[in-house]
């Protein structure tokens, strides 16, 4: 095999993997605070890309449009939490799964009605020719994606580990009642986590849209892959998600390159099962320790 080809696949893998990491980050944030797997996480990503596209279409300057898109999607996250998650209270996991699935379906269907079924592309963040590296082409947008992912990871890491809000989030995650005793409102923390996850998701959708387009139905697969990344990272740590995302992106890109692109999605699903089976052992072990 040619070296440039391999390099090309690796570059693509890292780029796509970064996106998976961003989506996974949203899962991790919500899960670590509330114990909920938010099946609507992929829809936040979709909303980010599509909203940015519409705002640019309105003639707003690109940086303004992108930021406004993140703000709007964050609002969607907040509204979703207030209208669907909060009223459910401390429901069973089956109820919460159905709620977030319902939310995902709703958001996706509204998006389909509003934006139609066509995929749209955002303009790249910077113009300029692709760079050449060992014979492979690297689009400037890939560098943007990787760079923004890294920055986002660091920001979220610092937010969770070095700030008061982060400590409150963690406290709420560990023990709701104890957290309430020291004045931390678990419902507020749940709200914050959804807002944060929606914002991260939106950023992911915006940075990927110039490369792989955005469409109303992109949420399911992206969500699933983001979940795989998050699950590989154990659904708790920021850096685990990052590595999980990169691993998945690389595996997928190499498989698509050397085997067949029609089974690209299947690779992610095989990863999903592998991760779940490994985790199921650890889950059982965890339960035993708790018993």
């Amino acid at each position: 095999m040619a070296t440039w080809q391999l390099v090309q696949y690796v570059v693509t893998g890292i780029t796509v993997g970064s996106i998976y990491a961003i989506v996974g980050l949203g899962f991790t944030i919500i899960y670590s605070v509330t114990g909920i797997i938010n099946f609507a996480q992929g829809e936040f990503v979709m909303l980010g890309g599509m909203t940015a596209f519409s705002l640019i279409g309105l003639g707003l300057p690109i940086p303004v449009a992108l930021m406004l898109a993140v703000v709007l999607v964050t609002l969607v996250g907040v509204v979703f939490n207030l209208t669907a998650i909060r009223p459910a209270g401390r429901a069973s996991s089956i109820t919460l799964i159905i709620i977030t699935i319902g939310g995902a379906l709703f958001i996706r269907a509204v998006a389909g009605l509003y934006w139609g079924r066509d995929a749209v592309a955002l303009p790249p963040f910077s113009s300029g020719a692709s760079l050449s590296f060992l014979g492979a082409y690297i689009r400037p947008q890939s560098l943007w994606v990787i760079g923004i992912t890294l920055v986002l990871m660091v920001v979220v890491y610092l937010l969770l580990n070095r700030t008061l809000v982060g400590k409150a989030l963690k406290a709420a995650a560990i023990n709701r009642r104890a957290a309430a005793l020291v004045g931390i409102d678990a419902r507020m923390m749940s709200l914050v986590s959804f807002a944060l996850a929606a914002a991260t998701g939106a950023i992911g959708g915006i940075v990927i849209a110039p490369i792989s387009y955005a469409s109303y139905d992109m949420g399911v697969m992206l969500g699933l892959k983001g979940f795989v990344a998050a699950a590989m990272g154990g659904l708790t740590g920021v850096w685990g998600v990052f590595l999980g995302g990169l691993g998945l992106g690389l595996a997928e890109s190499l498989a698509a390159g050397y085997i067949s692109s029609s089974y690209k999605d299947a690779i992610a699903l095989i990863f999903l099962f592998a991760v779940l089976l490994i985790r199921s052992r650890r889950l059982v072990a965890g339960e035993e320790a708790a018993a």
């Binding site: 099962f273 199921s280 889950l283």
Partner: peptide
């Protein structure tokens, strides 16, 4: 047998993934 080692959220994801694999 493998899938029901999982519970709740993980089971939901696994069945979702299984459905998509078969669909592919």
């Amino acid at each position: 047998f493998p899938i029901f080692r999982l519970r709740g959220n993980y089971l939901a994801m696994a069945t979702l993934g299984l459905g998509i694999i078969i669909w592919i």
